[in-house]
Design a protein around this nucleic acid. Structure first.
Lengths: 212, 212
DNA sequence: CCAGAATCTTGACACTTGTCAAGAACGAAT
DNA sequence: ATTCGTTCTTGACAAGTGTCAAGATTCTGG
């Protein structure tokens, strides 16, 4: 009987701990999301914990309660960012039933994300560059890069499939191409070039049929 | 006669000023070169003027004598970097007399630069990302990007010419492709991936005949 | 050789940074 | 209602930041 009681108590305690953990983790993500705001605004180099705290509903001490240090926080930000952006084009891929539909859906999303989420995207490029200096970022960054490559590959494969073809190049080359174009367009867009987005769309529209 | 004397004096004074200016500028470049060492090692975010000074033969005060502020220094670094890297493949393009020779020359230089100048390249990607946040960098960065695009285009054009063809895509797309591949390979290389360089070479070797 | 300008060194300044610890506020179980 | 563990606030700390100015040093023209 003693055993059963301890067993039951154990189970209750475990459940409580799981609950606490979930709450803890939810808070971490809340904080990471707040941090992403400021990071997207100022970039990695100019963002301090106090600045993050001031642009949020939290005080700077909380961040040290939930994260072991600044790198820990930013790693969490990066991981959280990943979940959001990797599925961006999945709808389009799933619903498009013709090459043209896929093209237009893809381009529309591309333009929209470049327009409205420029800050998050520049942060991604910033952090990817940081990973070249800071080893702590590398694992997560490389993983996200792989996911993005896969995302592009899904689009290209579907596009090829709709034309009864096969992609003409490797996943790595395709991702490099689109990522490079996007990065360049983003910089121009942020520099005030009003034609940057349109030029990106033109380029991609021209390119798609030649690579898939 | 008074006029002639003043005229002569003027000329001498002017010459002296030009000389001083040249000396001044030479020193600026020396300082920028020293700064590039530390920037390449630590990245933009973690590099301070004192750190730069400590890793060089200068004291931190000198930097403020030659540069109005930190951004001014780094802009000078960026501009100086440009001059060095834009001509990297010109020899190969000028001397190659067959597609194979151009391919092998290009790949060899590509591998060598990725291997031995990884720090400078990661700094370039870092600063290009910074330009997305810091307007002061944009003009120079966009200019360098254009130069690099032109550099790639010279290689591709020559490669196509040697096969009596014409490049199959736009300068922007070609640059995006190679830059994206290089950036990815650099990150993997810095992360300790021993196969990164070889994979880049394979990819480029496969790609060249299909795009030009 | 010497005066004045150019160059450089040094030390200080005001401020920001990440980190931490002491304790206040809060919530839940007894 | 009290107690205890969790969560959060506040203020402090040492270290590091860019900037500047006063003075030492070096260079240069007369």
């Amino acid at each position: 009987m003693a055993r059963q009681v301890t067993g039951a108590a154990r189970r209750v305690a475990d459940a409580a701990e799981v609950l606490r953990d979930e709450k803890f983790n939810a808070r971490r993500i809340e904080l990471a999301e707040a941090a992403l705001e400021t990071l997207g605004e100022l970039g990695f180099a100019r963002t301090s914990l106090r600045e993050i705290a001031q642009n949020s509903a939290f005080t700077h001490g909380v961040f040290h309660y939930y994260f072991s240090d600044k790198l820990d926080l930013i790693c969490c930000c990066v991981r959280h960012y990943k979940a959001k952006c990797v599925t961006r084009y999945d709808d389009v891929v799933a619903t498009a039933t013709s090459r043209d539909a896929l093209t237009e859906g893809f381009l529309a999303k591309l333009a929209a994300t470049l327009q409205s989420e420029a800050r998050m995207h520049r942060l991604w490029y910033d952090l990817r560059s940081q990973a070249m200096f800071e080893a702590a970022f590398r694992k997560d960054v490389l993983e996200i890069d792989k996911s993005l490559e896969a995302m592009i590959w899904r689009i290209a494969s579907r596009y090829a499939e709709l034309g009864n073809k096969r992609p003409a190049s490797s996943p790595a080359a395709l991702y490099a191409l689109f990522d490079g174009l996007f990065q360049s367009a983003l910089l121009k867009h942020l520099a005030g070039d009003k034609t940057a987005i349109a030029e990106l769309l033109d380029e991609v529209r021209r390119l798609l049929p030649t690579v898939c």
